[in-house]
Design a protein around this nucleic acid. Structure first.
Lengths: 209, 209
DNA sequence: AACTGTGAAGAGTTTCACAGCG
DNA sequence: CGCTGTGAAACTCTTCACAGTT
């Protein structure tokens, strides 16, 4: 068993995207680095964690490498995804057809608001939260997406964990509390904006000094 | 001049959120660490980059610390934000009233599609991209949010850069190419899902072995 | 000659552990 | 005594530089 460093895992999806768009049959670490906007030594080291898939003097076979990266990322099977919280963002994500770059099937939409339940979004109908646990069993959701307001996010996470979901994508602006075997990824607009603000103020200061 | 490490900057918005929700007048690094789900030594080291705002034997004054963190993040002034690409996601973000935790004013919505131009979203009207450069000058947008499809994202970024924007929040699944003085933050759903997929496959393997 | 794969150095980050202050 | 602030150790990540392969 390998043990790919987290920093490398974070970059694999980017490499994959670049590889899929690349037209020639082989690619050098230099070229891939340029497309992914990283250092070429980093590309080589990252890819070396997957195995020795390059050819010295030539580069990497694009199709083969694409396949290896996909495999490492677990993209050879589809994952069932559910979304809890059908406000603006939940609706937008549900309708966002090309979910990821395929491989992720949104198979359930849930909301606590009885007024929203039954409404159709794309080709799915919003279901009540009471139906959640049973739906996890029958439809095998692997990934739960939380797009509720902050106030309802922890409760949603608890519900997901109880139903056996071990992978959560959290869009609510709150730090979730979950058992350590559950993987939570935060996608946090307000945090990102505040970081923008930090670097903006900082460069404003630099201009003055 | 300080030089706060990037890893610390990333956590300041989280501390800020925890502080704002905290009720008591003082808080220990231990308690704040628990809320932010990090190690307490990390909290103390992070906060020490801002200055010595704690009191030994007591903890941090919540109001004072909240103020200092806000100030450091440049949240004492408002920032004007514009959104380019008014599809599902752009619409959702535009309507997402509590943009960040306030301090970010969405003052412009743009789309290249003439069919969308003029449509009202919240209390703004969608404008054509041709009006972008002039709007940056008159309304002083500091932060540009890109919610176009991947195919239009680079062009949008170029337009922003040319108009003088130095801070971009990119939701499009593509690595943007910008001059180095421009700060681009990626918020990438498909990347996050693929990372979820990686850890899901990995733990499935662990269960088997 | 061109490019990968990788040891080793360097930079950044986290954590420990405790001195020092209130 | 309790809790901060911080050197130093441990760890992780990045980058360099070059040996090794085609």
């Amino acid at each position: 068993m390998k043990g790919i460093p987290p920093a490398t895992v974070q970059r694999l999806p980017i490499y994959l995207r670049c590889l899929r768009e690349f037209e020639a049959p082989t690619i050098s670490s230099e070229r891939l680095a340029e497309l992914a906007r990283v250092n070429s030594a980093k590309v080589r080291k990252d890819l070396s964690f997957l195995g020795s898939y390059g050819t010295r003097g030539v580069g990497y076979d694009v199709d083969h490498l694409t396949h290896q990266v996909s495999r490492e990322l677990g993209l050879t099977k589809d994952w069932a995804v559910c979304i809890v919280g059908m406000g603006n963002l939940g609706n937008a994500l549900a309708r966002y057809g090309g979910f990821g770059e395929r491989g992720f099937d949104v198979l359930g939409l849930f909301d606590s608001d009885a007024g929203k339940v039954g409404r159709k979004v794309g080709n799915l109908r919003i279901e009540p939260l009471g139906a959640f646990a049973k739906a996890v069993k029958s439809r095998g959701f692997s990934i739960g997406v939380i797009t509720t307001p902050a106030s309802a996010a922890q409760e949603s996470a608890d519900r997901m964990v109880k139903a056996g979901i071990t992978s959560i994508l959290n869009f609510a602006p709150i730090v979730l509390s979950v058992p350590e075997e559950v993987d939570v990824r935060r996608v946090d607009l307000s945090t990102e904006l505040q970081i923008c603000s930090f670097y903006l103020s900082r460069s404003a200061g630099k201009r003055a000094s």
